[in-house]
């Protein structure tokens, strides 16, 4: 018998700001099966929005390329991966510091990673200059109800 608590989805979309809302919608639809509370749903949507926005704002400076979004469910564990093949980051540690931003003129607050960490249970960032950035986030759904 197949495990009903396992599910997987994988998606590519253009690195355009109009797709930020689309990515949030896709992830919320994916996690509906896990019976999340409204707060859990909103937390994940916020974190996804931050990661996808980062990829769109920072990864590609010239030509418009794509962002990759993967969701996995295993029991009550949700894993969301947001990946780009853009410029990458030299110093991930600095980039993750609250208020660190390379684009203050665009009113970027530098709060993106802090928000991801605040709203998800685990956040891991893997980046290589010239190769891209991969953000892996996990959240355990339903832990508030025991």
């Amino acid at each position: 018998m197949t495990d009903q608590t396992r599910n997987h989805m994988h998606l590519y979309f253009d690195a355009r700001s109009v797709n930020e809302g689309f990515a949030r919608l896709v992830v919320s639809a994916f996690m509906t099966e896990m019976n999340p509370t409204l707060e859990e749903l909103a937390d994940v949507k916020t974190a996804v929005s931050e990661a996808v926005t980062n990829a769109i704002v920072h990864a590609y400076s010239e030509e418009e390329r794509q962002v990759e979004l993967t969701c996995d469910r295993c029991g009550n564990e949700l894993t969301v991966v947001v990946e780009d093949r853009g410029i990458g980051m030299e110093d991930v540690k600095s980039a993750m510091q609250p208020f660190y931003t390379t684009k203050p003129e665009q009113e970027r607050t530098g709060m993106g990673f802090a928000f991801m960490e605040a709203f998800m249970d685990q956040v891991a960032v893997d980046s290589r200059p010239g190769f891209g950035t991969k953000v892996t986030m996990k959240k355990y759904i339903g832990k508030e109800n025991g």
Binding site: A42, E50, T109
Partner: peptide, 13 residues
């Protein structure tokens, strides 16, 4: 119904 850190940026701006 939804706001993220980019929205915070708008308010601070």
């Amino acid at each position: 119904e939804f706001m993220d850190s980019s929205g915070i940026g708008v308010v601070i701006g």
